[in-house]
Design a protein around this nucleic acid. Structure first.
Lengths: 197, 197
DNA sequence: GCTAATGCATACGCAGCGTATGCCAGTGAT
DNA sequence: ATCACTGGCATACGCTGCGTATGCATTAGC
């Protein structure tokens, strides 16, 4: 049983590091967080960090992937909450927009990770959310709800539009009003995808 | 005459700094460029830098604004090259997509600047390109080519979609094929904005 | 022509990343 | 049960690089 306890301890420190890093990155930003001070806040030192994640970028990647996985789970639940696929799709997009307003997500996943990790990140991590979205689009196409097209690309386009909109909402003083306007215009844009007939 | 020569010298050093920073940021990224080495490549020292731009972020802002202004000029020329507003609009979007593939633009304007400068940048600088796009959308709405909506928001949505698509194109091995696919799907998305009647 | 101001260089301090080294606990074999 | 050993984590060091304070030279105003 010590065997289990041992690996549990290891996973616990990994978890503590990711958790603390998440808070630090979210509040101070990637560049603004000191490895010394944030590891101290988790009751550890940089030794643990470099052992588990190699370097600062490795840590950011791990954090970003964690958050992305959580987002995907939350979005999946929302998407499936409506039996109508098209409406589930719209709900999902709206929920994604809301999530993109959360400071932690906005700062870590949407701003810092693409800049710091570059293409390596965009390919690997955000794909959870993106591939899920592409699957939904595939189903919508298969059912003839929207016109044929490349689901992966359209997923990217939608994702980009929503992210940009979320950043815009976040930069103003009246987020609620902006959110409502954006939601209307997003729905218009998405409705343009629908098959006409 | 010395008066003119004097201010010319000053503008020259400013220009040299921005030019060198542009190359360095584009190649090494913001975080990867050392203020010492890059100023040396311009035949100057950090003294000149901090005198003109205050700090590293100030320099990045200046560089980003410079590039953005150039982009806006190039895009304006392309937009007006076609007398038909809708086609001019499509040309512009396609050209923007191409521009977003240029390493310098992608790295500095699309990746690093939003991350490093945050909301301060998204508001101030990229607005040149965005307000121009919004104006075009306004005209399209006024002429009944596309349905009514908030031009500023739709401009953001389109911008975000194109940026995200460009990043995706840039991360693969066969950019040409990807570009063609993206262009098709973008045109589809944009066509969805058109008024039905 | 003398002084004030400005453009820019030099010199310094300090924070922070990464690595090399060391220690201790837990693991597996005899 | 003991002992060698692997692996998790801490400590210590060096180096890079940002920002600031100071200094010098040239130019602008009176």
């Amino acid at each position: 049983m010590t065997r289990r306890a041992r690996s549990d301890m290891i996973e616990e420190t990994r978890g503590k590091l990711i958790e603390a890093a998440r808070r630090a990155f979210g509040e101070e930003g990637y560049a603004g967080t000191s490895m010394d001070t944030f590891t101290a806040s988790a009751g550890l030192t940089r030794g643990a960090l470099y052992h588990h994640f190699g370097d600062k970028k490795g840590l950011l990647l791990a954090v970003a992937e964690t958050i992305d996985a959580e987002m995907d789970l939350r979005l999946a639940a929302i998407t499936e909450s409506d039996p109508d696929i098209w409406r589930g799709f719209l709900h999902r997009c709206r929920a994604y927009l809301e999530m993109a307003l959360e400071p932690e997500i906005q700062r870590i996943v949407l701003r810092d990770a693409p800049s710091v990790l570059g293409a390596a990140y965009t390919q690997a991590s955000q794909r959870q959310c993106l591939t899920s979205l592409a699957e939904i689009l595939s189903r919508l196409m298969a059912q003839g709800v929207i016109d044929q097209g490349d689901p992966d690309i359209i997923a990217r386009l939608i994702n980009g539009a929503l992210v940009e909109a979320a950043l815009w909402i976040g930069e103003g003083d009246a987020p609620e009003g902006r959110f409502a306007s954006v939601a209307r215009n997003v729905e218009r844009l998405l409705s343009g995808l629908k098959a006409r007939h």
